[in-house]
Amino acid sequence: MKIGRDKRAFLYLAPSLAVFAAFMFWPLVRTFYLSFFSWNMVKPVKKFVGLANYASLLSSSLTYRILGNTTVYIIILLAVNFAAPYILSFVLSCAVKRGKGFYKSAYFMPSVVSLVVGSIVYTWILNPVSGPVALLLKHLGLSIPVWSKTDGIVIVVLSVITSWKIFGYNFIVILGGVSGVSEEVIEAALIDDVPLRRIFIDIVLPMSSATGVYLFVMTIVQGLQYVFTPIKVLTQGGPNYASSNLIYQSYHELFVVYRTGPGCALSILTLALFSLLLFLEFRFFEKKVYYES
C-alpha cells in the first residue's frame, strides 16, 4: 500500500517524533554526556572528568560482580523463557491435538499482571518458614534457605518471579513462529519416521529461527529490565549487591547514592551490550535467509 511520495508524511510523524525527541533521543544524548562528568544531581556545577567514570567502573571489582550477576540472570531467563517455551510450543503445535487455544490463553494470564503483585505473592509462596512451598518441602524433609539473604539463590528466585510474568508472552510469540512451519513439512518428516526430537532440531528450529533469534534477544533485553521490579521491591540489590544487575545498579548509582557519573556510565555500558545484541540480530537477518512466510 503506497500512495504518496512527499514530505507530508512528516505531518503524521510529528507527534511521535516530538515525544521520541524529548523522552528518548535527547535523554540518550544527555546520559552519554553526563557519563563524562562528576555530578550529584543537585550541585550547580558538573565537573568534567573525561573517561574517569568508565575507568573507575572497569577497575572496580563491584562492576565485575554486577556483570557476573547479569550473566546469571541472562542464563536463567533464557533457560526458562526461551528454551522452555520453544520446546513447549513445539510440543503443543506438533504433538498435541486438543486444547491448543486453551493453553495459549491460559499461559498468557500472568503476563498481564503487575510484577509488583508477582513479587509480593511470590515472597509469600516462597516464604522459608510458612509459605506453601516450604511446607511442602518440609514433608519431604527438605527446607528452603532464606533466599533473600543468600547469594546465588536470590538471583534464581528473582528470575523465577520475572519469568512468571514473561513466560506466557514468550510462549505466544514463539508459538507464532513454530506454528508458521508448514504442517506438510512436518508431515513429510513424520512419514519418513523422523523422531519428534529430530524434527524439532533439524526442521522446526531452523525454520522458525527468525522468530527464535528475535525472542532470544528480546528475552535478554526485556528480561533484564523486568527483573528490576522484583529487585527494587524485594532486595534492593542485596544482600551486598548479590542480586543487583546492570540496570538495577545504574538506578542505584543514580537515585540511591546520587553519583550520576558512574550511573550514566553503567547505563551506557548496558546500552552497548544491548546494541551488540541488536547488531547480532540484524546480522542474522542479513546473512541467513529465513523461512517464515
Binding site: A9, L254, S267
Partner: peptide, 26 residues
C-alpha cells in the same frame, strides 16, 4: 524513510536506565 523507521524501532532495545535520569530532570 527506512533509516528513520529503523532508528525508531531500535529504541525498543534501549533500556530504561539510559533515559531514566534525563527524563527525571526534564
Amino acid at each position: 524513510k527506512n533509516i528513520l523507521y529503523f532508528v525508531i524501532i531500535s529504541t525498543i532495545f534501549i533500556p530504561f536506565n539510559v533515559t531514566m535520569l534525563p527524563n527525571y530532570l526534564t
